[in-house]
Design a protein around this nucleic acid. Structure first.
Length: 763
RNA sequence: GGCGGCGUAGCUCAGAUGGUUAGAGCGUGGGAUUCAUAACCCCAAGGUCGGUAGUUCGAUCCUACCCGCCGCCA
């Protein structure tokens, strides 16, 4: 086993401000890195930000600043958040740094010199949002995200991806663990088997990128740019490439499932072409889903990690802010790693977070530490007692006997990235120790037992419990590092970062050790914690741009696709990275636009996602330097604001804006038209019977001039289901059909690009 | 549409190359206890293992079809 471990997260695209999905990937990486370090492995943990591309260029323009200023700002937000959470990355790479730019140019030159890059031309549809060429007829929406595409004709450099089909398949075959989990591996293999086309790796349609050496009007395709970070950050091809020599190839690339292909097909092919070693494994995790629709009213919003830091931080009001943050970070880390089977999608909700926290951290681990150490304080003056007879302790308690197995099971699960099971194992040990204490009741002195006997018994029992806590703490340190450090020092063992956590031997705890100062670890979280976080989240919900400039309400051809994106956005990509920040931005943008277009009938003024990304960060060094043009936010709630201690101050909404609650009052549902006929003596009116799943409604719609009744039968449409009934031409209309209104009043029905069940609610 | 996956207690999920009473945690109900953060400990209730048909002595596990959900298809 080589004594080094290099792991990476994706570099996050700076088009959206950081949220819990980014935090998830980075937390997982941090936990792995901490475990590796604690095992004595030379570890390098890299994260960073991806800052080039047309989207950034445009967002910056919309925000009235340069792309570099824009990227600086958002990148700093990521850095600040990781600092607040105590994440221990060893390096943070930005793709706009000279070290990266130069190395990417070297990489391109190398690929070209080796004959894998050639010049060609391409005409086709380009999706700006995805920054990808897509297969679609001119004028058609992007098949991926539903946004409009642009017809582009470019002279491009191409990478000979097609040359690697066979070699990639052989590689997957020889390295069964290269892609995990299995289901992703199968997807990738079937993708490659389907045939590989050469890949366009340059752009001339915008400037915000790394120029191709020798042909500077071309900039490097964002994905090639981004993926290369894994070696450029190590100093590959630079004067000092010692890090590269030590750490490459990577042991683990952590990625979200949506970008598996880039990491498992393109990246290995680039490396093969360059003659460089391939990473050892790529592990894709799932997405975080927020509060499934059936659980609650539409709260479905993007959750930011800061909300949790602040919500939980308030449980420890006496601590300095920085320590509150670390405490909250532990709660979040534990939840994400314990609750979600790594690799699968998982549900996140404040309720689940608090419940898990209370059950496992407060009632379980925290309480166990508390009861054990306080008894040692009471009965042994705060000195770890001497167990009665060496060896007998282990023999006599089943959980102690099983601790070595706990250690090995924990290690095996953790190292297989099955964090959930690893923690389950550790917590089974917690429960066993609790049961042991209750069964032996060291606080009791049975009849007929002398004081000395009782004290000897107590010593035995409490030593055993304390020693078990020491071992469990060492195991869970990578997951709840801050709490573990506290327990370590409460046990009188000093700084956990200096401890040897790899040689865990029973009886490693020295009797006579003076306990440190005791303080509650995980105070129980009350219901208010949940409401506090919900409120914080609402307050910080992506604020749409202010300063509305009333513009001619022109029809939005992308309307339906925005609706679609909004729905899909409910499932937010957890760790989207590089330029597939799609889900999040899609959600932020689409829901806002949908709300406005559906309810307000107004066109929005600025893309909301980039604006959201520009929220001021008081904790950061940069001030809110002038983003000329639009004023971005009301001064009120900003990232990093201290948690409101109490008081559900109703968030004030910018003028002309509605809250998510307002929106959720509108019950939009998918309906299917069963009957459609003209209303006699009415030019525009159709009488429709629409199946809403649970019932069939009669709805009158003024669309007769645009749609023939028979063409509507079977069509799925969007219905405002809770509109008050109204009579038209003597017929009752029970609801309303959502349609775009074009010039001249011509309606275009909203629909879906894919099949949706009748009755499904839009929110 | 093509390929692949999933559907097990209220919730989140385990599991069995087919074989007697299908498991865990949380939640719920009851009991016990008071060292501890109204925590901990013990007990209990709760499942036609998506549906139908088939193979088999026997299927929740295999096969077929169906229903529902999901992923990949630049």
């Amino acid at each position: 086993m080589p004594d080094k471990f290099y792991l990476t997260t994706p570099i996050y695209y700076v088009n959206a401000r950081p949220h819990i999905g980014h935090a998830y990937t980075t937390i997982v990486a941090d936990a792995i890195a901490r475990r590796q370090r604690s095992l004595g492995v030379d570890t390098w943990f890299l994260t960073g930000t991806d800052e080039h591309g047309q989207k950034i260029e445009r967002s910056a323009e919309a925000a009235g600043c340069t792309p570099q200023q824009f990227a600086d700002r958002v990148s700093q937000e990521f850095k600040n958040l990781w600092d607040r959470m105590g994440l221990t990355c060893d390096d943070f790479i930005r793709t706009t740094e000279p070290r990266h730019i130069l190395a990417v140019q070297n990489f391109i030159t190398l690929l070209r010199d080796r004959g894998f890059i050639y010049k060609g031309s391409y005409t086709g549809q380009y999706c700006v949002f995805d920054e990808l060429y897509v297969e679609a007829p001119p004028g058609a929406p992007c098949p991926d995200c539903g946004r409009p595409t642009e017809t582009v004709s470019e002279e491009n450099y191409f990478f000979k991806l097609s040359a690697f089909e066979r070699r990639l398949l052989e590689f997957y075959d020889e390295h069964p663990d290269f892609i995990r989990p299995e289901s992703r591996r199968n997807e990738v293999i079937s993708f490659v088997k389907g045939g590989l086309r050469d890949l366009s790796v340059s752009r001339t349609s915008f400037n915000w990128g790394i120029p191709i050496p020798g042909d500077e009007k071309h900039v490097v395709y964002v994905w090639l740019d981004a993926l290369a970070n894994y070696i450029t950050a190590l100093g590959w091809s630079s004067a000092d490439d010692s890090k590269y020599k030590t750490f490459w190839p990577a042991d683990l690339h952590l990625v979200g499932k949506e970008i598996i292909r880039f990491h498992c097909v393109y990246w290995p092919a680039f490396l093969m072409a360059a003659g460089l070693p391939l990473p050892k494994s790529v592990h894709a995790h799932g997405w975080l889903l927020f509060e499934e629709s059936k659980m609650s009213k539409s709260r479905g919003n993007i959750v930011r990690a800061e909300t949790i830091l602040e919500g939980f931080g308030a449980l420890k009001p006496d601590l300095p802010k920085a320590e509150q943050d670390l405490f909250g970070a532990d709660a979040l880390r534990y939840f994400l790693l314990r609750e979600i089977a790594f690799g699968q999608d998982g549900n996140f909700s404040f309720d689940a977070l608090v419940q898990r926290y209370n059950a496992d951290l407060a009632n379980g681990y925290g309480n166990l530490v508390s009861r054990t150490l306080s008894m040692i304080g009471r009965y042994f003056d705060g000195l770890v007692p001497y167990p009665a007879s060496s060896g007998s302790v282990v023999q006599s308690h089943s959980f102690a006997v099983e601790l070595p197995r706990t250690i090995s099971t924990f290690a095996a699960s953790f190292d297989a990235l099955d964090f959930s099971r690893a923690l389950e194992t550790a917590w089974a040990a917690v429960a066993a120790v609790d049961g042991y204490l209750t069964a032996n009741a060291p606080w009791k002195q049975p009849e007929g037992v002398s004081d000395e006997q009782q004290q000897a018994l107590r010593a035995d029992i409490l030593y055993t419990a304390a020693e078990a806590i020491r071992i469990i703490t060492a195991l869970v340190y990578p997951v709840i590092p801050n709490a573990a450090a506290q327990v370590w020092s409460q046990l009188g063992l000093g700084d956990i970062r200096k401890a040897d956590l790899k040689n865990l031997q029973w009886r490693g705890l020295k009797p006579g050790t003076k306990l440190g100062e005791l303080s509650p670890l995980f105070p129980r979280a009350d219901k208010e914690t949940i409401t506090r976080m919900s409120e914080l989240e609402q307050k910080n919900a992506p604020a749409p741009a202010a300063t509305p400039e009333p513009e001619t309400a022109e029809p939005s051809p992308a309307h339906t696709s925005k609706l679609k994106s909004a729905i899909e956005g409910l499932a937010v990509a957890m760790a989207e990275s590089t330029n597939e920040t799609a889900a999040v931005a899609a959600f932020e943008g689409a829901i806002a636009e949908t709300v406005r277009e559906t309810i307000g009938g107004r066109k929005d003024q600025a893309p909301s996602a980039p604006v959201a990304a520009l929220q001021p960060t008081p904790s950061g060094p940069e001030d809110a330097t002038n983003l000329p043009g639009t004023r971005i936010l009301p001064p009120a709630p900003a990232t990093g604001t201290v948690a409101a201690p109490a008081g559900p101050a109703a968030p004030t909404l910018p003028e002309g804006k509605i809250s998510i609650d307002d929106f959720s009052k509108v019950e939009l549902r998918v309906g299917q038209i069963k009957v459609a006929e003209r209303v006699p003596k009415a030019d525009k009116l159709l009488r429709l019977e629409v199946d809403l799943g649970t019932e069939t409604r009669q709805i009158l719609a003024g669309i007769a001039e645009a749609y023939a009744p028979e063409s509507l039968i079977g069509r799925k449409v969007v219905i405002v289901a809770n509109l008050a009934p109204r009579k038209l031409r003597g017929l009752e209309s029970n609801g309303m059909i959502v349609a775009a209104s074009l010039e001249g009043g011509r309606p275009v029905l909203a629909g879906f690009l894919e099949d949706v069940p009748v009755g499904a609610r839009l929110k």
